[in-house]
Design a protein around this nucleic acid. Structure first.
Lengths: 196, 196
DNA sequence: ACCTGAACACCGTTCAAGT
DNA sequence: ACCTGAACACCGTTCAAGT
């Protein structure tokens, strides 16, 4: 499903709304091309807006990321709930993990932001991260109950695996992210407990 | 084994040598406390040296890291070779992976530097990273030959797992690094291939 | 209600001038 | 042979002054 440009929550003056949307558009393009750590000052310049205007709309980089990704993250959480009744609890979990990693890789450096935001209640991204974590929790709990995943696997394990794999993929010229995710998910499986 | 302060490779003038060592000492302390991305300018200030002097001795941040960690990384590679005749190839590999992660976590942010350096031949850290990778390759090859690890597991997989786990641990308030490493290593195991 | 742009306190890196 | 410190081109963030 296409999500489109997010809309500001409240009524805004016409010029404010235009600036808001130009900032979002330039940020989306710049983050996609150069990563989530791209210069905010340069984004303001590209949007033909004073740097102070950017901070007026988005007091932190996290606020900007939330405006860009909040809906997408809630959609990811919803996908997790849709996968709950999957015939194979492990396969449902694995499919969602791959979708989550695909989400994390839209901006380079995003994994770090998502890892920090889930533990930082003051982060504008925190609520969205919590929703994603909760979706993971549902899938993990069901796979655990079905005995398809080790009893000690937690939702934070899944969350960390997805972000760490995305991170590894960014650092590598080969598809290291997908490989790590596969190995990690298989490490979650009950059969992996059987040691020599 | 203690490694101590690395020595410059060539004869130096007395004042140069003093500056070199002060820079190394301040960098080691600052990196340990604030991570491998700590300001080089501030390190020069703490060493009571002009910023240009730092660049004279260490043209890049990577050169500074190499001077600090090169010997330690070669020692890690040697440990890998010592573990080659381990009675259980998998356990030997796992023990070395844990040692490697312990090495990576001495400075926050080091994992990213090590991931990039192993693919960047122009990096001053490249040779040391290659030595570590080669040690991993030996352990992986033996575990693979013994059938204790999946046939498709590679040395870069192990290298990436260690660094990604170290990275995840840095972002988290719980020991997420150790957990991810355990899951990933178990995902390497042959038994994990047995799927439903 | 919102925008502007200067101000402040930082970076990394280079390089002419010194000793 | 090495050191110095200014110079350059950047950052993120704040805030008084405008409209």
């Amino acid at each position: 499903m296409d999500i489109g440009t997010p809309a500001p929550r409240r009524r805004m003056r016409a010029d404010a709304r235009r600036n808001y949307e130009r900032l979002l558009a330039e940020a989306a393009a710049a983050f996609a091309e150069h990563g989530a750590d791209f210069s905010l000052e340069e984004i303001a310049r590209r949007a033909r807006v004073a740097n102070g205007t950017l901070y007026g709309h988005f007091p932190t980089r996290r606020a900007l990321l939330e405006a860009l990704l909040g809906d997408r993250m809630r959609a990811l959480a919803a996908t997790g709930e849709e996968l709950l009744p999957h015939p194979s609890p492990f396969d449902g979990l694995a499919a969602w993990a791959r979708a989550a990693m695909a989400h994390t890789t839209i901006y380079r450096g995003l994994g770090a932001a998502l890892m920090q935001a889930v533990e930082d209640e003051t982060s504008e991204l925190h609520t969205a991260c919590k929703a994603v974590l909760a979706a993971g929790e549902g899938l993990v709990a069901r796979a655990r109950a079905a005995g398809e995943v080790r009893p000690d696997v937690t939702a934070p394990d899944l969350y960390a695996l997805v972000n760490a794999a995305a991170w590894a993929g960014e650092q590598s010229s080969i598809p290291q992210g997908e490989r790590l995710l596969t190995f990690g998910l298989d490490g979650f499986r009950t059969s992996a407990t059987t040691r020599g």
